[in-house]
Computed example of a mutant assay.
Amino acid sequence: MRLQALAKLPGRSESQIVDQALAAYFSREYEDKRDGALIRRLDRIARQYEGLRRGQIISAEAFALFVRYFLTVIPPVDTAHKEAAKAQGQNRFEGFLDSLRTVLADGDKILFSAVDDILVDESAFFTAEELKRLHEPAPARPRKREAAADG
Rank of each mutant, 00 (worst) to 15 (best):
A7P: 06
K8F: 00
K8A: 14
L9A: 13
S15G: 01
V18Y: 04
V18D: 02
V18Q: 08
A21M: 13
A24S: 13
A24W: 08
Y25P: 03
F26S: 13
F26W: 04
S27I: 10
E31L: 14
D32H: 12
D32F: 04
D32S: 13
R34W: 12
D35V: 12
D35L: 10
G36D: 11
L38E: 07
R40F: 01
L42H: 04
D43N: 03
Y49T: 10
Y49E: 08
G51P: 00
Q56T: 06
Q56E: 07
Q56H: 06
S59V: 05
S59A: 11
A62H: 05
A64P: 00
L65G: 15
F66W: 07
F66P: 03
V73Y: 10
P75G: 08
V77P: 01
V77F: 02
D78A: 14
A80V: 10
A87K: 13
Q90P: 00
E94H: 07
G95V: 13
L100G: 03
R101Y: 11
V103Y: 02
A105N: 08
D106R: 03
D106Y: 02
D108G: 05
D108C: 02
I110K: 13
L111W: 04
F112Y: 12
F112L: 12
A114C: 14
D116F: 08
D117G: 14
V120S: 11
E122Y: 01
S123A: 06
A124M: 00
T127E: 03
A128W: 05
E130H: 04
K132V: 13
L134K: 15
H135N: 09
E136G: 03
P137K: 10
R141N: 07
R141G: 01
R141E: 15
R141C: 01
P142T: 11
R145D: 15
E146I: 08
E146C: 05
A148Q: 10
A149S: 11
A149N: 05
